[in-house]
Amino acid sequence: MLKAIIGQKTSKKNSYGKLLTPSFAISLVIFIAIVVLSAFAPVFATHDPNKNELQSSLAGPSKSHWLGCDVNGRDLYSRVLYGGRTALMGALGVVGLSIVLGIPLGLVCGYVGGLADTLIMRLCDVILAFPTLLLAFLFVATFGRGITISVVALGIVYVPMLTRLTRSLAIVEKNKTYVSAAISLGYSPLRIMYRHILPNCISTILVQLTLDLGYAILDLSSLSFLGLGVIEPTADWGAMLGQGRLYLLVNPYLSTVPGAVIVLSVVSLNIFSDCLRQYLDHTQVQLPSFEEYASRLEKQQKPQESGA
């Protein structure tokens, strides 16, 4: 889907906007590696992540336990892989929920406006006035602990930001001629919002979503770190970090490894989204110099000549 959306905008020939910059490639490789390792955790894992081997409690790295074991003697390497599942699925859930609620609300606010806009935006202001995590605490305190509740809580907290963004983009598009044309062609408001306005805002929203995914991993980990997210024995990076912290001097791997994967995934997502934004923004295209262009043309012509 990503490719289809990007492909539409720059289907022009001879486009010099490069998506595959080194930083983009590196961040993409890191993130894909994290996703693949977590998604196929049962294949890559060496042990059952929840199996206690008390005799190897807090053991250091060894041949059988590559990264050592935690206090209950569970294999750290396997738990990091399975923890990735929790973190990524959770973050995806958070972002998914904010898409499902935030984009339609934003479109309605921006396109329809009026009373609905005022009410929804004030509600957003109220939610945004609280720090993200504080509000999530409130949800957890009310509805109890657990990964599902944390995801729903964070999902709702993430909605206002996306609503605001979508709304401002929709207002810009709404005033363009093609929307007036669509109205005068007798299109329904629903069609105009989803078939005409949304596709023209999607690239900016997409950038925001990749950024949100990183923040969601971070926030979910924070909740689990504080013991409000996952329930034992489910593996989760944040929870592992929290537990490992107690044994920092005995086995530093217990907290540094989950911490490192959190940092890696969030940073790679941030760089990814930054590259995406630069690519989609036409004003930031780097043009070649005349000399570069000439040598590029030569290179293009040479294979053709030799082919002929």
């Binding site: 001629t177 093609y178 007036s180 005068s184 062609l185 007798g186 329904s188 078939r195 005409h196």
Partner: peptide
């Protein structure tokens, strides 16, 4: 909305009067 089919508008800015993300064929088919 039913009346719209009997009344139409042509706008000043031709560059803006089509959805930039939609092919012309798809716009007419819609």
């Amino acid at each position: 909305i039913a009346l719209r089919s009997q009344m139409q508008m042509v706008f000043q800015n031709p560059y803006g009067s089509f959805n930039p993300k939609q092919r012309i064929g798809s716009a007419l088919a819609e």
